[in-house]
Amino acid sequence: MPLPDAWELTAEQREFVRLARDFAATEIRPRARAVDDAGTESPLDLWKRAAATGLTDFMIPAEHGGGGVTDLTTQALVQEELCHGDIGIGNLLTSNGFFAAPVLALGTDEQKERWLRPLTGPEPPLTALAVTEPDHGSDAAGIRTRALRDGDHYVLTGQKTWISNAPYARRFVVFATVDPGSRSRGVTAFVVDRDTPGLSVGPPLRKMGQRAIVNAEVFLDDVRVPAGDRLGAEGQGFAGLMRTFDASRILIGASCAGLCRAALDLAAAYARERVQFGVPIIEHQAVAFRLADMATRADTAHLLTQRAARLHDRGLRVTAEAATAKLVGSENAMFATWAAVQTLGGAGYSQEFLAEKWLRDAKLEEIEEGTSDIQRLVISRALAAS
């Protein structure tokens, strides 16, 4: 069930929401179970159909061939609708936006055109953002992948893990350090082509949920990257990454709001039809109160996401607000999907319904791009500094 928005939407926003909602209902939701069962295969045919409708590049600026929806408010509305269909597939379809974000934040005009233009049109490649390492997940400042200057090139050496889209990606934004031990001061970003000698990708990692996006390790063995493929100056990568995370955490909140709504819709529909002790279970107080909690949490996730997005679009610093949107959205999604399984009972535990899949999917959002503990730390630091 779509939630009424607290703010008036523009005609363009309503059109994008309608497009995403229709695609989610007709294309995404019917494929959710089969994609989950496939395990380690992304639905590339669905990616191509989404690209043909503009749903894979709507967030790319119009001057580089994209849909020109650069405000995070509209992006979050679209993300929520796609993830109401299926959060794993929805996140896949907008994943090139995560590659584009540091390019837009740090790149020159020439670099933006060179790397963003190919992401538009009916057959765009998949891309990847390579940050996480085996010993450094949420601590992006501590990455150890080394970037050593060698004339007009850099030589990258290191290992990345849990990189989304890695088996399919044609280009990577790789974060490395030019000054080991200096933490954030040395972090620098590079765009690396898939075919560059020394870059290799491991086998797909088997995951608990969100299997539409395939993850793998990326190995960098003396990978030579032209200095012209560095994004920004040496040491600017961490600031660009944090700006990327401010936006992406808001979009994660939007994804979770869509998942909350999906779980609520399923649980409420089942509760209206399922009869126990002579009445539909929606009339049982325990079930009714659980559904009320789900509705409240879905609304909260949506509103906090929209608040953060609208503040971001005003040019304000939103690190704490983005952390709040992600923290609340992800934990509400965990509750809503658990509550859906609980409401459906044995049917929820089976694969007859998507509730059990959604519960597995939701867990990722409490972990990726900074765990819930990290988000609480960000929020507490903001409170201490205020």
Rank of each mutant, 00 (worst) to 15 (best):
H302G: 08
Q285C: 14
D222L: 15
A263P: 01
A339N: 08
Y154P: 11
L327D: 08
R376I: 06
A128C: 08
Q159L: 15
E365H: 15
V192F: 10
I89M: 02
A169E: 04
K160R: 09
G142Q: 10
R31W: 13
L119T: 01
T244D: 05
L129C: 02
S372L: 07
G329I: 04
D152N: 09
T196C: 07
R171Q: 12
D179G: 08
L106H: 05
K326G: 02
G142T: 09
T300D: 11
A292W: 13
P61M: 04
R171N: 08
R14P: 05
T53L: 13
L119C: 03
P134Y: 02
I28P: 09
A385S: 11
L377T: 13
R33P: 05
D22L: 12
F172Y: 12
A216C: 10
F58Q: 06
R310M: 10
K326P: 04
R170K: 14
E368Y: 14
V201L: 00
R33G: 03
F277S: 15
D293M: 11
G66W: 08
V187G: 02
V174T: 01
I163L: 00
P167I: 00
D193P: 09
E217S: 11
G121Q: 01
C260P: 10
H64Y: 13
W338Q: 11
N91I: 01
K48Q: 15
T74M: 02
R31E: 15
P122W: 10
D373A: 14
T300Y: 06
W338Y: 14
R297Y: 12
L104S: 02
A292L: 15
D150Q: 15
R307K: 12
L205G: 11
H84P: 05
D86F: 00
R49M: 11
T73A: 15
S255T: 08
M334C: 14
S248C: 03
A166C: 07
C83T: 13
P124C: 05
H153P: 04
D373R: 14
L266Y: 01
W162P: 00
E217W: 01
